[in-house]
Design a protein around this nucleic acid. Sequence first.
DNA 1: GGCGAGTCGTTGGCAGCGCCAACGGATACA
DNA 2: TGTATCCGTTGGCGCTGCCAACGACTCGCC
Lengths: 151, 151
Amino acid sequence: MGDPHALPATAPSRVRDRPSWLIGRAYARSSALLNERFEANGAGLRGYHYRLLAALDEWGRASQIELGRSTGIDRSDVTGALDELDAQGLVRRAVDPADRRRNIVSITAAGRRRLAMLDKIVAGVQDELLAALSAAERRQFVALLRRVGEQ
Amino acid sequence: MGDPHALPATAPSRVRDRPSWLIGRAYARSSALLNERFEANGAGLRGYHYRLLAALDEWGRASQIELGRSTGIDRSDVTGALDELDAQGLVRRAVDPADRRRNIVSITAAGRRRLAMLDKIVAGVQDELLAALSAAERRQFVALLRRVGEQ
DNA sequence: GGCGAGTCGTTGGCAGCGCCAACGGATACA
DNA sequence: TGTATCCGTTGGCGCTGCCAACGACTCGCC
C-alpha cells in the first residue's frame, strides 16, 4: 500500500509532526541502511542471521527452540535461517543424544569470523544513523528511546 | 521470519543495545498501538486512510496522483484505499472535466467527521507512546528523532 | 509396560506491505 | 497526424510475521 515512511517523506502536517510518524521515519532510515549494507557486504546474510549467530556466540550451543525464544524469531523461521547458515558452514546441527527431538546448534569458527564481519557492518550503520548527533546527544537519544520502547 | 522487534523483546546483548534495535522496538510499539486503536475504534479504516483524508483536508481536492505524491503512497495503492473511503461515503471521485485522465477527489462532510475521530485516536496513541516521558523530555525526544530521521 | 499428553523440528500456507509492470483511455507536442 | 507522455487501474511479485498441522520423540501417570 505504499511505504508509509518512504524517503523522502511527504505527509500532511498533522501527520508529519507526530512522534509515531517520526519514529516510523527513523525506522525506515535505519532498516534501509541496514539492508543496503548487509546486501553490499553481508555475503548473502541478513539481520536475522546476524541475530542467530550473535545468540549462539553469546550463549553457546542451543536447541532451535531456545534460539527462537532468545532472538524472538518464530521456530518455523529459525529452521529456514539455520538451513542457510548451515549451507555456508557457519553453524552445525546435531541431534541431541539426550533428547532426540532436539537439534543442538553450535557456531563454527567460520561462523565466528563471519559474525565479526557483520558486527563491523552493524556498528558502521549506527554511526551513519546517528551522524547528525553529538556524543552527548546520542546518549540522550538512546536513553529516551529505551524508555519509549520498553513495555 | 519472526518479528525482529516483537514484544516482549529478547535479543543477544550486542543487538539489544544498538540504536537501530531500539528504534525498531519503539517502532514496533508504535505500530502495534496504532493498529490496535484503529482496529478497535477506526470503523474499518487504517493508517493510510487517515493520511489520505488528512491530505484532502489540508490541501483540498486533488487528483489521485497528487494524493499519492503528497502522502508517499503508491498510486496503485491509492486506488484501492480510495475505493474503501468511497464505499463509506468519506470521499467523492469525479472525472476532471478539464483533463479527463484525472479523477478529482474531494473529502465529504462525513469524511471530515471521520477524520476528526481518527485524529483523536492518533493523538491518544501519542500520549500512550510517550507516557514514560515528561513534557520536556518529549520535546527533546521529538527534536532528536527529527534530526535522526531526516536525510 | 503402555498410554496419553506434551515437545521439537519441519512443512506449508496465509495476510499485509512495499513495489513494479503493463494496459486502455486521454492529453500534449512535434 | 502521429508519437510521446500522463492517469487510473489491474495484477502480480517478494519479503516478513505468523499460525496450523504433522511425524518423531519424550515424559508423566496409571
